[in-house]
């Protein structure tokens, strides 16, 4: 088949339309993950493997989304009960702008896992980029959608107008120097580029959270309808998932073994140092370093408001749901 990136079209079809989805037992909780297996989901794998979900009375089935069909698409299509998603993507999906053709999803958050932004821009130093102002007029690539809001604010803050082209699934265009800068996740692309032999001193990095930008990332979402019917399951899911991350933090090597086994089973190229890098960074994002604004799993209302404001300003959303509607579990416990 023609290359379609990390996952082929054939694989997408297999996972989306056949196999476990077709023969779903009624009491199984289907959890859709945003992407193919990697340490980004390590805590969830460990909760599953170490029986934390089972202990919480959950029979969880994991589904991996892909480029063709996102985890929110799966949730929306009732092919999943719970999905992981970036906060900004979830807000955009829940409150599309009036100009958009998209239908607003009935989305509620079960947990906010990744508490801070890992989004960054990486630029070639030898193309003259030392600081944000050097990006002016340069050709760069970044992901579209909710991510672009952070970058737009960043560019505006430094009054630069780069030539932006959409970035998709790889950073090869950047590595082949087709663009002067590209978007990267600190826990993923940043390290992949380093693993392509590019030393740090050749690059200038702009980590969005260093500039007060960027949004909290991965969270657990479901529909309010499902939450109404399975409130206890949702709470159990949040607790067990966080316990899974705790377990991953306590047993990193075992966790990496599991992640690599998941990747191998899915036919995804992976190597341990990269998955370790990702695990360390994602763990710090989820369980914090002690000075996180909220306890693990909870979304800070102020951060939520800032995110909504930024997305509104970027014209990516219309009227966003209020905090308590969006995070009913936190609202109810508070």
């Amino acid at each position: 088949m023609l290359a379609l990136g990390p996952l082929s079209a054939a694989q997408v079809q297999t996972e989306a339309h056949s196999g476990p989805l077709a023969a779903r037992p009624p009491d199984v909780l289907r959890l859709a993950l945003q992407w193919s297996p990697q340490s980004q989901f390590a805590g969830i794998y460990m909760a599953q493997r170490k029986g934390l979900y089972a202990d919480a009375g959950l029979r969880v089935e994991l589904i991996h989304a892909n480029a063709e069909r996102s985890s929110l698409d799966l949730l929306h299509g009732d092919d999943a009960d719970v999905a992981t998603a970036f906060l900004a993507d979830a807000i955009v999906a829940a409150a599309p702008p009036a100009t958009s053709q998209a239908e607003a999803m009935d989305l509620v958050q079960i947990a906010q896992l990744v508490q801070h932004s890992n989004l960054m821009l990486l630029a070639w130093k030898d193309l003259g980029i030392q600081g944000p102002e050097d990006l002016d007029g340069q050709m760069l690539s970044h992901w579209q959608g909710a991510f672009s809001a952070s970058f737009d604010v960043f560019f505006a803050a430094y009054d630069v107008e780069p030539v932006v082209i959409p970035q998709y699934y790889s950073v090869n265009l950047f590595l082949k120097r087709g663009v002067a800068a590209c978007a990267a996740m600190q826990y993923n692309e940043y390290h992949r580029i380093w693993q392509a032999g590019v030393d740090d001193e050749r690059l200038t990095g702009f980590l969005m959270r260093d500039y007060g930008l960027g949004f909290p990332e991965d969270g657990l979402y479901t529909t309010s309808d499902w939450l109404d019917r399975h409130g206890e399951l949702a709470r159990a899911m949040r607790r067990a998932t966080l316990a899974g991350w705790e377990y991953a933090r306590a047993h990193p090597e075992e966790t990496l073994d599991v992640v690599l086994a998941e990747a191998a089973a899915a036919g995804i190229p992976a190597n341990r140092p990269h998955e370790r890098w990702m695990l360390e960074h994602i763990l710090a994002s989820i369980l914090g370093t002690g000075n996180a604004p909220e306890p693990p799993g909870a979304l800070n209302p102020t951060v939520y408001t800032q995110t909504v404001d930024t997305l509104v300003a970027a014209g990516l959303i219309g009227l966003a749901p209020d905090f308590s509607t969006f995070t009913p579990l936190d609202a109810r416990t508070q």
Binding site: L2, A3, L4, G5, A67, E68, M139, I165, P166, Q167, Y168, Y169, S170, N172, L173, K176, G178, V179
Partner: peptide, 15 residues
Amino acid sequence: AGYLGQDWFALPHYL
């Protein structure tokens, strides 16, 4: 036209 973002299309496109 989902292929627009694939390397096999995007790289010759932009390079």
